[in-house]
Structures are given as C-alpha cells and as structure tokens.
C-alpha cells in the first residue's frame, strides 16, 4: 500500500505540489494526469526518494520514504521522465549493473536479465551502445531496468511518450500483463491510454489534486456522456432533420458539424432508441450512429482550465 499524506513541494516561490494526499492499494493502476508543469513528475520524484518533500509524508508498504528511503526504493521500479540511461553502456552491461545493484548474483542475475530482455524484446540490440538505439528501444531498456526485480510498486513517468503506436501498445500490454498484486502509477498526456489501462485516475492541476475517481466515472463527467452522434449521408438535409430532433422531449440540445450531428440528452435520458426510431420513420439510413461514452479530452480540459470543448 502507498500512503501519501499532505505532500507539498516548494521550488523557491513556486509551489509545485500542494497538500496532495492519496492512498493506493495493490492491484490498482493509477493514471496520473495533468497539464505540463502541474506537478506530476515532481510528485513521482518524491515518491521515489529523488526529491525531498517540503512537507508531508510518503509511505510505501509501511516504509517511510523520508526516514528509510532504501527499504522503500527496494520495492519500487522507476522509469524517470525521458528514460535516462547510461548511454555509453550496452543494454546487456546496463541491465547487469542494475541487477547487481538490486542484489542478484550469478544464475539468478542471468535469469533476471534474460527474462526482461525477452519481455522487452531487446535481443537484437543487446550488444549495441544505448546511445545508438532508437527512442523506442531506449524506452524499453528503461522499462526493463524498472521491472528487473519484479517490484511491488512500478512508477512510470510518461512511459509511452515518443513511441510509435505499435510500441505504445506493447507497453500497455506489458502493464496490463503485470501480476495483479502490484501498484502501478503512470503519468501521461495520452488520455486514451488512461481508458485502456488505468483502473483509477487522478488529475492534478497547479500542484493540487482536483479529481480522484475511476476512468468510467471520469467519462461520465463529460458532457458527451450519453450523447448520440449520427453521421449522415451527404444527400440528407441536416437542417431539416435538426428541426425534427430538437422538439423531442428527451433531447436537450444538438450540435451540427458538416454531416455529423451530436445530440445531447436531457437529464441523462436514453435517446438512442428514440433517435433510431425517428430516423427509420424518416427513411434515413445514417452512415453510422453511436452512443458516446464520454470524451476524456473534454473532461480533462474542463477540469484543468475550467472551459469545455
């Protein structure tokens, strides 16, 4: 379990993190969101003992990071922002070094290194200097060192930043494939990622925690939650249809852009069947029609800037 209580961090006159409290149980995958400079990385640096909090405490499975950093750090695997490594080393020598520091010797060390090399598909670059590797491989080397000791807590600062879609999927699969007794904290800008892997979402803005809920709950906060979007064939008169949808009692409002119409329900009512009934009646076959789960981008913007899309 991780317990963060009243964490505050001051850089000069700037308050990067302010009175942040958080409790995490094993099995949770936390998406740590917020605009750039909101204090995500600073918080992660304090969790891992790299920075000292100005005030507040952090405990990792009962080990206080301030009083007993080494015991806490033994349980943590950390991928810092940008996945820094010793670039003059090869993945092989680098991972062996990390394994040694993590206390593995001989056969166990070899087994651990082989294991993460396989997991991260690093075989083909094993003897190349890290500085010559592509961004994707570098990131994988960074992830490999973070999971080599099978840590109970995994802290990943923007693990998929700068990766191509295939690599992103690989990293997500890796996170989802971790055993369920771990705590994973991921910071990211990519909101689809949160929906894809995270069980819980925390949003920070200007150093303060503003949202703490599940990914689904967050989607529900979107004004798009429950809305229905229709994509119409080009020969349909959207304005005419609009005049027919607007008077419906369950409809609150609608937005037209080109051939797509988004209809917002009143009081979270189900409007899908009503609309499809109306379309059948009118003899219109839409190219597609779907109910929105909610747009995270929209909620994110709403929460962090106070305006919506």
């Amino acid at each position: 379990m991780i317990e963060v209580s009243h964490l505050t961090r001051q850089f000069g006159s700037l308050r990067a993190v302010e009175d942040l409290s958080l409790k995490l149980e094993p099995g949770e995958i936390l998406g740590f969101l917020g605009p750039n400079g909101a204090g995500k990385s600073t918080t992660m640096k304090m969790l891992t003992g790299f920075l000292v909090p100005t005030s507040g405490r952090i405990s990792v499975f009962g080990h206080d990071v301030g009083d007993n950093p080494i015991s806490a750090q033994e349980m943590i695997g950390y991928l810092p922002e940008g996945a820094p490594c010793y670039e003059d080393m090869t993945p092989e020598t680098f991972l062996n070094f990390i394994a040694e520091i993590r206390g593995f010797r001989d056969d166990e060390k070899r087994r651990r290194v082989d294991d993460v090399v396989k997991k991260m598909s690093l075989q083909q670059v094993l003897h190349q200097k890290i500085e010559t590797l592509s961004k994707g491989f570098k990131r994988r080397v960074g992830l490999a060192q973070a999971i080599i000791h099978d840590p109970k807590v995994l802290i990943l600062d923007e693990p998929t930043d700068g990766l191509d879609p295939n690599q992103k999927k690989q990293v997500r699969d890796l996170i989802l494939g971790l055993s369920k007794d771990k705590i994973v904290i991921i910071s990211t800008h990519i909101l689809e990622e949160v929906a894809a892997v995270c069980s819980r979402v925390v949003i920070v803005s200007e150093g303060k925690l503003v949202v703490d809920c599940s990914a689904e709950e967050l989607e529900k906060q979107s004004r798009f939650h429950g809305a229905v979007t229709l994509i119409l064939p080009e020969d349909v008169d959207a304005d005419l249809l609009r005049s027919q949808i607007e008077p419906l009692s369950s409809v609150d409002s609608l937005e037209v852009s080109g051939t797509s119409i988004t209809v917002f329900p009143k009081d979270n009512r189900q409007i899908f069947s009503v609309l499809s009934g109306l379309l059948t009646q009118q003899g219109i076959a839409p190219e597609s029609m779907f109910q929105e789960k909610g747009r995270l981008e929209d909620v994110f913007r709403q929460i962090t800037t106070g305006e919506s899309a």
């Binding site: 640096k45 891992t48 003992g49 790299f50 950093p69 080494i70 015991s71 750090q73 033994e74 943590i76 950390y78 810092p80 922002e81 940008g82 820094p84 490594c85 010793y86 670039e87 990390i98 520091i101 993590r102 060192q145």
Partner: peptide
C-alpha cells in the same frame, strides 16, 4: 545533464 542521476539516486543504495 543526461538525467541518469535520477536513476542512480533512486536505486536502493546509500
């Protein structure tokens, strides 16, 4: 400069 200090100092070493 390279940021590896963050890696080194978050490893469980004195």
């Amino acid at each position: 400069k390279s940021g590896s200090i963050e890696l080194l100092l978050t490893l469980p070493i004195r």
